[in-house]
Design a protein around this nucleic acid. Sequence first.
DNA 1: TTCACCTGTTACATATCCGTCGCATATGCG
DNA 2: CGCATATGCGACGGATATGTAACAGGTGAA
Lengths: 230, 230
Amino acid sequence: MGKGGQPRVLLVEDEPAQRTVLAYNLEAEGFAVTQADNGEDAMVLVDEEEPDIIILDWMMPKVSGIEVCRRLKMRPETRGIPIIMLSARAEEVDRVRGLETGADDYVVKPYSVLELMARARAQLRRVRPSTAGVVLEHEDIRLDPESHRVYRADKVLKLGPTEFKLLVTLMERPGRVFSREQLLDLVWGRDIYVDTRTVDVHVGRLRKSLMQFGGADPVRTVRGAGYSLG
Amino acid sequence: MGKGGQPRVLLVEDEPAQRTVLAYNLEAEGFAVTQADNGEDAMVLVDEEEPDIIILDWMMPKVSGIEVCRRLKMRPETRGIPIIMLSARAEEVDRVRGLETGADDYVVKPYSVLELMARARAQLRRVRPSTAGVVLEHEDIRLDPESHRVYRADKVLKLGPTEFKLLVTLMERPGRVFSREQLLDLVWGRDIYVDTRTVDVHVGRLRKSLMQFGGADPVRTVRGAGYSLG
DNA sequence: TTCACCTGTTACATATCCGTCGCATATGCG
DNA sequence: CGCATATGCGACGGATATGTAACAGGTGAA
């Protein structure tokens, strides 16, 4: 990771408005952002900045995102950098081609900014398992995404799949309040239509699971806003 | 959207039955809906109502949806408003043309109302992402929108949802005097029928909350004008 | 098949908050 | 000073958000 501790992201997107919004959010999330609005600049900046991850728009003038992706994945010294592709509207063909060229993940516009950043963090964790991030910790709760296990005060907790994903999401940004809609997006998925009250039920179940061996309730309800950890 | 109120949607659809159903559902989902049944009215209402998002029928008498979309995307002050196009025809040609004219998303009739609203929410999140990373401060009051927490002299304050939104609004421009009407607009939402005296009551409650552990009253009453911070 | 487990929805109880009213108090003005 | 109006604030009935048990399916393993 970058010298200063912040993960470096190279953001390549030709549409200024979208790029600005994304850059703003990435910086707010603790990324060091380098921007490019075309593929040629991007290729140069990859060498100059040595980003930890690349977010790449599919459609761009001159050198397209696909082409940039393909080239980077051919060079041994850049192959290891995770690439997340952005694309407008999802023909299945595109999705396949995107992954075929070696992209590590693929996000369809319009995307949830939250989700995009969650995926970026996931990619970073995948590539950089040595750094902090393998195991999420918050107070006496420890979560190992690898083994899918959750501990509290050294006891192994048993939770269902949805509870687990919910906890992962909350633990990735302790303190941050997630609205029910955001949680539906992040945990259930963007195109799943489920009543928002379902979130309440699962939060309740997660709470019970987290407290099955005692301990305080680590989940905070923020009336009118959502839930957060701590 | 105002700072805390409902997101405003402009619904443009010439077929009354469809428009009514959609409006009903959008309102049930917490949107403030303005309706138009033709492109000309729509253009006017965009300026008058400043919607956060526009749902636009493709086929309409006089000025078509495509045309409205094209015009709006040409004007800098309206370009940022997300537009979701509705169309009865699903030919690929249309899809392409729809996105080419600058629409941000595209839904083909017959559509699932749930899906349409999920997409509307997705667009809103994209354009107006949460106020991330910014911590508002004024004298010894600190407000973190992300964690939804308010501190005064390092103690955590407990305030209700409306008090919170009110404080956010005031803290975003310390010193500025907000009239009761402006506060109703910004905190409660545009077309909410509420007595202006309600603002007084909530300012009172906010004051009490801010002083629950002592300290001076940070809210200034400007007789005949409104309230401000500091 | 049965069984154990998980899921999303519903219904209801409860806690919390909201908006309004009434009256007290403060302010400005002639 | 006395009056008119603006603001402060306690109290109350009702609205709304949340917690949670119960239920009816769904899934996959044995």
